[in-house]
Design a binder for these strands. Structure first.
Lengths: 244, 244
DNA sequence: CGAATTGTTGAGCATACTCAAGGAGCGTGG
DNA sequence: CCACGCTCCTTGAGTATGCTCAACAATTCG
């Protein structure tokens, strides 16, 4: 569950135990239901344990803008008590398992475990970095490259939590849902997918994607994982101490 | 300088004095120079005091993706020591005045003044909310609406720091710079601007924009300021205490 | 098996891009 | 003060990309 935070830097086993201890009120959310509604004033932080969810906004013309995908290990709204109300909704795409963590618990953890506090900061800052990358992707890349880039990102993020490898990932998203994130219509995304398949960059099988040659795909996608800020677990902590 | 943070909630005059006290090493940056370079490991937080800057990434094809505009009162990288390296650059668009704040100073302030800490959190979370809105804007709105939305946002943000009013703002950005933020080519943005002018939604005069009827423009832009999370200074604090 | 959802195809149209040329505004230097 | 060069904006023309609508195929699920 907390695998992802291992990439934040230097967590100790005790930190991990403390993090796992947070997960008490586990609950299920059905596909297509909201986990947090737009405008709400939530008093708990949500953590996705299983399934895929998304941040989204409904646009006035009825389109759904998907702003982020949340995969197991992702926090929903660490911050929300500071802002007051949600300016977007969070919805379950597949059936999900979610944990509700009370702000007090988190506050307590942050105050007693500085490394955990830093890891949680890291997590929200990486979310922001992903957002920046999506913005650049949507605004400045051709559609094939755009889709490929999103797939590369999802593959890597899923790999980190043990849900994908170099050659394959299960991705229970419809083409339309990918399109809603990329700003591409459902008809067109189908054609874009075809082009990727024609070039043997991805194969689709059921709800799984197969990558015959990941390096080639990442090259085509102009994918550079730096923005995910993954320091390898166990590696030298990359922190202030090393700043030049 | 700290006007913006008044909208974060309930700062006291003493808090404001403490914030202003941070600004010591003021320096100038010339238009088109970088304030922070991509990949850098900065050890200080930057604050824009005067001028307009932007976060940007250079794309492999040579295009510049503008990811945010920074106006006076905006912080550059409150967070960066947690992430280690910059995944984008920050550049001055006009001549700028910038303050370098040492991480220690900020840390100190955060630990001694909880309201200031909250205000700084608020500031970075609003930046993230703006990013989400830009993503939705670029991916899901037609070009006219897209440009109009950006103009409405900039006008309001500039108004907060006393640099615009309901009818007019000085905006020293080229059309190309607006296009780089919106994912629209320089030729096309000129035509989009023309359409806005034809409908009397904006007039351009030198480097100033005039809004004959702001309500109509905001309506056309589908602009809803909720995402900027501005609680009016002096109003009831919108915080946890009121969560339902 | 049947219904619903998801993906695919074709055709026509709208939007936006590129390339190329020209005009307007501004600052510098003769 | 004018001439020049630079940057920025504008216009036209041709092309590419992506949208909508509509029909149909494939897949999934009850």
């Amino acid at each position: 569950m907390a695998q992802k935070l291992l990439f934040a830097g230097d967590l100790t086993p005790a930190d991990l135990v403390a993090l796992d201890g947070l997960v008490q009120n586990r609950r299920s959310v059905e596909a297509r239901d909201d986990i947090v509604r737009d405008g709400e004033r939530p008093n708990a932080v949500r953590l996705v344990l299983e399934g895929i969810a998304c941040r989204y906004k409904m646009m006035p013309n009825g389109e759904r803008a998907i702003l982020a995908y949340l995969i197991p290990g992702d926090f929903c709204d660490l911050h929300i008590t500071v802002l007051g109300h949600m300016d977007h909704a969070i919805g379950a795409i597949t059936d999900c398992q979610v944990a509700d963590l009370h702000s007090d618990q988190i506050q307590n953890l942050i105050q007693t475990k500085p490394r955990v506090a830093k890891a949680l900061w890291w997590s929200t800052l990486v979310d922001e970095a992903i957002l920046r990358t999506w913005l650049a992707n949507v605004a400045h890349r051709a559609s094939g490259c755009r889709l490929a880039h999103l797939l590369c990102e999802l593959r890597l993020r899923l790999e980190i939590v043990g849900l994908a490898d170099k050659h394959q990932m299960r991705l229970p998203l419809t083409q339309e849902e990918l399109g809603d994130a990329l700003g591409i219509s459902n008809v067109h995304i189908s054609r874009v997918f075809q082009k990727l398949r024609e070039q043997d960059l991805v194969l689709t099988k059921n709800r799984s994607l197969i990558f015959p040659d990941l390096a080639r795909l990442e090259d085509f996608a102009e994918f550079n994982a730096d923005y995910l800020h993954l320091c390898k677990p166990g590696a030298q902590p990359q922190s202030l101490s090393r700043a030049s």
